[in-house]
Design a protein around this nucleic acid. Sequence first.
DNA 1: ATATATCCCTGCGCGC
DNA 2: TGCGCGCAGGGATATA
Length: 276
Amino acid sequence: MPELPEVETVRRGLIPVLEGKILRETEVYRDGLRYPFPPLFRERLKGRKILNLTRRAKYLLLNLDEGYTLVIHLGMSGRIRIEDTVSFMLQKHDHVVFYSNENKVIAYNDARRFGLMDLVQTAHLTDHPLFRHLGPEPFDDNLTPTVFYELLKKRQHSIKIALLDQKLIVGVGNIYASEALWGSGIHPFRSSHSLTLKDAENLLDHIRKVLQRAIMAGGSTLKDHQQPDGKLGYFQHQFAVYGRHLADCTTEGCAGKIKKEIQAGRSTFYCDACQK
DNA sequence: ATATATCCCTGCGCGC
DNA sequence: TGCGCGCAGGGATATA
């Protein structure tokens, strides 16, 4: 499910369809997802112009006129698809459907309903309970290796668990945490505070590379996806370790096999031989 | 402040 | 083909 690159892919795919457009109508097919929809959700969205689409952590933000922001989180199974009004068919687990003034339909589909939507005042977004404690964006220039190192130093957790904590750094989920650690040659069970400045620099570099690569992959498949079925944000990745339990490690000269272990209830994939 | 367990819900793939 | 089971990429919350 969606980590930062998937949300970013969805955002980029929605821009041509939604930016500068009007939300003509919104239909909801249940009271809420993880949380109930806010009061007067449909009414307050009606007729709003979408100024632009941004992203914070794994949240997709539709910034509207009149000072509102529609906050969307895809949770574990949230998907967005684009269709034309004339051919639109409601599918199983379509919970929210937006109709634009240009006869496009944006359907939010979420089987597990771990996603969420909220409508908040743009000016107060950073005070929102879901946003208040978010850590730095991975691509933020202010997140230097030294800053990252200092953040990691404070944590008692293993480095893998620390990376999943959105208070430390946002956007990294279970897949890319394993991938970035493998790329850095850092063992997922090492304690966060044991990392040296050099380790932190190396890890930050690989987090950025892994996320960037995934965004590029999403972007390249986006064109294909957008044509017939309009589905955004899910595409085939090439993972080095994630889901490759017992397969050969692909590090050059490494004869190791990929291991899978549970950390804090989540699967971690790594290579014992080349991650230290 | 930080660490752990639990919960939200449905679908899918696997072994039998 | 069907059934039961374990597992799934997120994150809030309660509790210590």
